[in-house]
Computed example of a mutant assay.
Amino acid sequence: MTKLNIFTAIIGLVLLVVFFELLRRRQLREKYAVLWIIVALGVVPLAIFPSGLDWVTRQIGVKSGASLVLFLGLVLLLLICTHLSWEVSQLEEETRTLAEEIALIRTQLEERSVIPERDAPATEIGPKAAGDD
Rank of each mutant, 00 (worst) to 15 (best):
D54N: 05
S113P: 04
E21R: 07
E87F: 02
I6M: 06
E92W: 13
F7M: 12
P127K: 02
I48E: 04
F20K: 01
L78E: 07
D54H: 02
T97K: 13
A122C: 15
Q27I: 05
A120D: 13
S85C: 11
D133C: 06
L28Q: 06
L15A: 13
A120T: 14
C81P: 09
E111L: 11
L109R: 05
T57M: 00
A66E: 06
S89F: 14
V114M: 15
R24V: 11
G65Y: 04
T97F: 14
P50G: 00
L41M: 13
L109S: 04
L104H: 14
L22R: 08
L41I: 10
E30Y: 13
V69Y: 04
T97W: 14
W86C: 00
Q27E: 13
G52H: 00
V14H: 02
V62C: 01
I125M: 14
L77Q: 12
E21C: 08
F19E: 06
I11E: 07
A99Y: 07
E21K: 08
V34A: 05
R112H: 14
G65C: 01
E101L: 08
V43W: 01
V18A: 08
L15F: 09
T123K: 06
L41K: 04
T97Y: 14
R58K: 07
V69P: 02
V75E: 01
L98F: 07
D54S: 05
D133Y: 09
A47E: 03
F19M: 02
K3C: 07
G52E: 03
V62L: 00
A129N: 08
A120H: 12
D54Q: 04
L16Q: 05
I105L: 15
V44S: 03
I80D: 13
D133I: 11
V114I: 15
R26M: 07
P127E: 11
F7C: 10
L77V: 10
G126V: 00
E87Y: 05
R118C: 15
L77E: 10
F49H: 01
L72K: 09
T97G: 11
L53T: 02
I48F: 02
L41Q: 11
L76Q: 10
P45K: 06
D54F: 01
P50N: 01
W36A: 05
T97D: 15
A9W: 00
I102V: 13
G12L: 04
